[in-house]
Amino acid sequence: MENRIKNLFAEKQQGLLSVYFTAGYPNLEDTVPIILELEKNGVDLIEVGMPFSDPLADGPTIQQSSEIALKNGMTIPRLFQQLQDIRKHTQIPLVLMGYLNPVMQYGVERFCQKAKEIGIDGVILPDLPLLDYVREYKSVFEENSLSKIFLVTPQTPEQRIREIDSHTNGFVYMVSSASTTGSTTGKAVANTDYFQRVSNMGLRNPGMIGFGIHNNETFAQACNHAKGAIIGSAFIKALGQEGELEQNISSFIQSIRN
């Protein structure tokens, strides 16, 4: 079966832009319009956030968008319903990102089967540890052709990065600095030694840098050290502004790419 993430990295070598947004924010039914608008504006990969009540790894922006999305009525079944026909409209690589508990309650196997049926390409669950994934869930993800994407950080030892690289496919999510999401201190792109160290390891998977990438400057800097970068909180802030969704999305993506 075709793997859209693999194809993407084969076709495009640098400057990839991946965008994260919380499904159900700002409005419950915005999921599909946001995906289509992001594609229209030349984004390469989309991470669709599944909101959780207790997002440990996230800063205030994603916490608030999650709270609003849950109030709006977003759930995993609802999200799957919205995405049911998405492959009739776009072939952009789609990754679902969220926390383990809601996925566990839905049923991990059922979740993976449904994701495959819809045409989802990958999954990120930051609080599912590598060892537990390998022991309990890896075969289910693989049977359903889902890339399970893992995070590495500046504190992750080399041996563990290699272990993660060996169990994953798609890309390695390089967390830019010791931080929750949404930092705008600029610390995100300061850690060039770490980026270089990972880059020199010759991993099987390409690297994407995320956390704290929030404008044209930080995006460009991150792209110097990896295949591309991931933007989440800054995009969610743009979605929360007044005005039309289309306009907010296109001006934000243009501001990053130009």
């Binding site: 930051p126 540890p129 995070l151 030892p157 563990r160």
Partner: peptide, 20 residues
């Protein structure tokens, strides 16, 4: 040895906390 009491326990933390 893996930090479990029967099926409960473990260390379900994001990679950022793994070293700590």
């Amino acid at each position: 040895d893996n930090g479990f009491y029967g099926k409960f326990g473990g260390a379900y933390v994001p990679e950022m906390l793994y070293p700590n």
